[in-house]
Design a protein around this nucleic acid. Structure first.
Lengths: 341, 341
DNA sequence: GCGAATAATGTAAGCGCTTACATGCGATTC
DNA sequence: GAATCGCATGTAAGCGCTTACATTATTCGC
């Protein structure tokens, strides 16, 4: 239907401008290979006809789609939304289009989506985290589709990656917590299965404890899906235990904001009665009262750099070794010294 | 590159199965037109070869892409992120893929993106708001690409649309504000140019004033781009004026959260010294202290319904008249009675 | 100002798929 | 049993574009 008599084709433009289709194509793709006078004539024809190249045809002939696929757990998480926005902006600047899918944190769905995007001719893929079935990486390699892993950096990553050290960052934060004298630590973690970021963050806390020779049971860990309400509930559960933690470290800011709210409902003051920490440093961290001590992650920088790196890969650059971005601790009000008994 | 010797084509499958390409194609698209024995043979060949149809070729030959494009101002705004997530989920359920672009609230960029997505063969388009150059609608019609307008409902919309009445909602909220006795109203509005939602929300406030015969200068309006920091700054500006407003109504929750923060910095208590209201009812509204009085919008419902409606359009349904979703006022702590002088 | 080198343009062969139409074959009908 | 029909399958013509290669116009050196 679409391509009825009404939609102009390259041919129409060529006729109108009195040149061959090849010349029109060159005007559009490699303008410097066409002399100026012809070029303007052709462009005028393009203009008056309102011509837009047919994507499918172009893909087929050129074997390039200028499309990048991104597969993220969810857009509802501000940290992905923001990074993705930056990613898309950079892509657009470079003439690429973004194809987005989300997986709801389900590896099964992720695999489907990866295949779907490859079938649609994505030139490259942005993937979140590194922990997935190795056969998927092999599949991508066989298909010649480069993939870039974002939001994660870890020495063991074999693929091109850009991210930050979730584990080390959390260790840093945990050290700060310990320095404040806390020895009973509650943890509200994201769901760990299929989510290396959550796993690494928890491991980071454990590292800090181990380094100080503290027993494993210093920690009370609760896993819960992403979401404000879930943080709230988890906080309640933690604080109703026989031995209350004096600090609750959360896997991300949204959980932490929920925890803050949970504390409030229990009549607990933060940080006088219990301290709370987050991770990501999204807007919400500075908005809540008390403001949230958290780990600052450069989301937009990550998005932009991911775009650059992925395009390089797509355009044939050799894979770089993983890039690590710097995080920084944001010490705010929600973390205080351990309460006097 | 991709389609080097390594990627199997329809031809390869046909040879392997000992049939013609037409039969293979039919197996994949209209299985019931192929006898069972052949079908299984073909499907086995597909399997062993690991064949996936080439998207570009398919598009070109079939003129359908099962792709829906969405063009939103930005993904950083939680309200779009959430709605888009729901939209994508529903699309995926129905076998469509989502193509996303953002415009940074720039009509110029929006036009570009619309054309880009059409060129990529999007079967349908999701657009935010109704206020755009009529020639764009004509273009889409000419191209045979149906578009659905979301996040906006207004009687004057001629296209298919799904959304809520920004103007009427804001009137409702303003009436509540007036009921509390406020007569000096500050407004922190989003940028109005090219953003009908922002314009309608402001108009809604004006409607409420007009209905009560209050003078236009009851209002002190400040326009500012979307963003927490901007709300903060705007709040400061408003409160430093000679005549301070007793309430500040904000165009969205993020601006309102910023305003809350601005108030705090000025040492003003909310709502004792000044009241604040938002719009959208995103998570942040319940997280801030004091919690935000705002307008609740059913984001996810809108996303899901938008997907259903747009697919119907794409599949040839006659355009429905605009659908209006119900909003509700969320009265929370940030709005109180006008302070005693 | 002539030939060679170079730049601009044209010609035409696909890219991988769908589908209208043609073909062949067994079943049905009288 | 011949003519007819219906179904499964094959043949081949594009879809609109890019690009290698061929052809023609232009520029430059001497």
């Amino acid at each position: 239907m679409r391509t009825s008599r009404t939609t102009p084709t390259l041919d129409d433009v060529a006729k109108k401008a009195g040149v061959s289709t090849a010349t029109v194509s060159r005007c559009l793709n490699t303008p410097d290979r066409v002399v100026k006078s012809t070029r303007t004539r052709v462009l005028k024809a393009v203009e008056t006809l309102g011509y837009t190249p047919n994507f499918g045809a172009r893909v087929m002939a050129a074997k390039r789609t200028f499309t990048i696929g991104a597969i993220i757990p969810t857009m509802e998480n501000a940290i992905f939304a923001r990074g993705l926005q930056a990613f898309q902006e950079e892509l657009h600047r470079r003439g690429y289009t973004l194809l987005v899918s989300s997986t709801a944190y389900d590896p099964q769905i992720e695999e489907e989506q990866i295949r779907a995007l490859v079938a649609r001719g994505a030139d490259g893929l942005l993937l979140i985290g590194y922990d997935r079935d190795p056969s998927l990486y092999r599949y991508l390699e066989r298909q010649g589709v480069p993939a870039l892993i974002a939001w994660a950096y870890a020495p063991q990553i074999a693929q091109s990656a850009i991210g930050f050290d979730n584990r080390g960052s959390m260790t840093l934060l945990a050290e700060e917590v310990l320095k404040q004298g806390h020895r009973r630590i509650g943890v509200i973690s994201g769901v760990i299965k299929g989510n290396d970021r959550a796993a690494d963050r928890l491991a980071g806390i454990e590292d800090a404890l181990a380094a100080q020779g503290l027993p494993r049971d210093t920690l009370a860990v609760l896993e819960t899906p992403y979401g404000f309400e879930n943080g709230e509930t988890a906080m309640r559960t933690l604080m109703e235990a026989d031995i209350r933690p004096t600090v609750v470290m959360c896997g991300n800011d949204v959980l932490a904001a929920g925890a803050l709210r949970g504390a409030k409902e229990l009549g607990l003051r933060v940080p006088q009665d219990v301290s709370v920490t987050g991770f990501d440093d999204i807007e919400i961290a500075r908005v809540v009262t008390p403001s949230l001590t958290t780990v600052h992650v450069p989301h937009r920088e990550m998005g932009t750099k991911a775009a650059t790196a992925l395009i390089a890969l797509v355009e044939g650059a050799a894979p770089d070794s993983p890039t690590q971005l710097q995080i920084s601790l944001q010490l705010r009000e929600s973390l205080g010294p351990v309460p006097k008994p």
